[in-house]
Structures are given as C-alpha cells and as structure tokens.
C-alpha cells in the first residue's frame, strides 16, 4: 500500500512537473513564423524580377526591400523564449542549440539586417543589382538555418 502511494505521489509530482513545463508558446511561434512569411513573400517579388519572371519595377522592388529591412529590425529575443525548441514543443523546427549560444544566434539575425540594408540601397537602381543582393540575403538565411533549424519532415 505504502509503495503504491509513494508511486502515485511520485507520478502526480511528475505529471504536475511536466504540465508546468508545457508553457503556451503559440503566440511566439505565430510571430516568428509570420515574420519569415513576410520575408519569403517579399523575397519572392524580388526573386521573380531577378529571374525575369516579372518585369522589373523600381517602386515595387524598393517596397519589397523596405519590408525585408523592416522585418530585420524586429528584435528577436522576445520571440524565442527558452523552451520553445523542437524537442520541447510541436510546430517548430527551432533546434535547442539556439539557446546554447543565443548571442551567436542573434548575430546571425544581425547579419540579415546588414544584407537587408544593402538590398534597400540597390533595389531601386535596376534589375541587375537585385540578384547579387538577394544572394547576400540568402547567405544569411543559410548561415543560420544550417546550425539552428531542423530539416523538414
């Protein structure tokens, strides 16, 4: 009897413990995944111009570049609370390694900001300038995803 009680107590403590650990990060996930969507849509506009799928339009290119730059200015710390990694919760590909070196993670985001500033300065100057500037942006995406994002499926 005593053994059963002890077991039940231990089990309930464990249950409460895990329930407490399971915080609700859904707003954080929506925010951070939404910002990547905004990036993707605007990169798509510029990419289609670079590829020649869409006619070059200086105003539209600058608008897209400004949107990308705007997203890059969102401070990331509030969107990535500890425990919101793919081992702890569903619906994310964020690797726990992000929180092992959050300063490095942040510097990868800052690199996107630098590339976005360059994109803003060249987007209106002509179609030829867009490809290389996008290449820089892509480099910053890769640099971060390579270390901090799990593969799809």
């Amino acid at each position: 009897m005593k053994a059963i009680l002890t077991f039940a107590t231990a089990a309930s403590i464990a249950f409460v413990g895990s329930a407490m650990a399971q915080e609700d990060f859904s707003a954080n996930l929506k925010a951070r995944q939404g910002q990547f969507r905004i990036l993707a849509i605007n990169l798509g506009i510029l990419g289609d111009m670079a590829k020649g799928k869409m006619d070059y339009d200086a105003a539209a290119a600058e608008a897209a570049a400004h949107s990308i730059h705007g997203v890059s200015m969102v401070h990331q710390a509030a969107l990535w609370p500890e425990g919101s990694d793919n081992m702890s919760i569903d619906g994310t590909r964020a690797l726990p390694m992000i929180w092992d070196d959050f300063a490095d993670f942040s510097s990868k985001w800052d690199a996107l900001g630098t590339a976005a500033e360059n994109l803003v300065s060249v987007a209106g100057t002509g179609r030829e300038a867009i490809g290389p500037a996008l290449g820089q942006i892509g480099g910053t995406c890769k640099a971060c995803h390579d270390t901090y994002r799990a593969s799809a499926n």
């Binding site: 849509i41 798509g44 996008l134 892509g138 480099g139 995406c141």
Partner: peptide, 9 residues
Amino acid sequence: SGFTPDFDS
C-alpha cells in the same frame, strides 16, 4: 541562390 520557389532557404 539556395532559395526554393516559395523562398524558403
């Protein structure tokens, strides 16, 4: 570029 058609990387 490393970009997929929907601009994932």
